[in-house]
Amino acid sequence: MEDNFKVIDNYLMVRMPEEVDHHKSVYISKIADEYIMKEGIGNVVFDFETTRFMDSSGIGVIIGRYKKISYFGGKVFAINADTRIKRTLMICGLHKIVEIME
């Protein structure tokens, strides 16, 4: 799990698991928060390359991290999202606060 997190400059890269549900999201949130607190992270990048399934728990993870880092002017990015994940993000209007990139 730990190698799914990587710090590059002040960006925290989070590789999302294959299925993002409540069970997995608890760990992601916890570990991501530790990194944000310890390492002075400015921005968070969520990498959905291997993700095939995401429900509202994933949305919770993104919104939670966004709230934390946006106080300091940080940004949240979503990369490599397939059409399903994009649709899920769009339904919640998350594309307004998260930059979705290829």
């Binding site: 999201s25 608890v26 949130s29 429900d55 509202s56 728990s57 949305i59 919770g60 993870v61 919104i63 939670g64 899920t88 339904i91 919640c92």
Partner: peptide, 14 residues
């Protein structure tokens, strides 16, 4: 507090 987004029923409906 648990990072719930409050979108559960909305997703089910959608």
């Amino acid at each position: 507090d648990m990072d719930r987004s409050g979108m559960g029923f909305a997703f089910m409906e959608a």
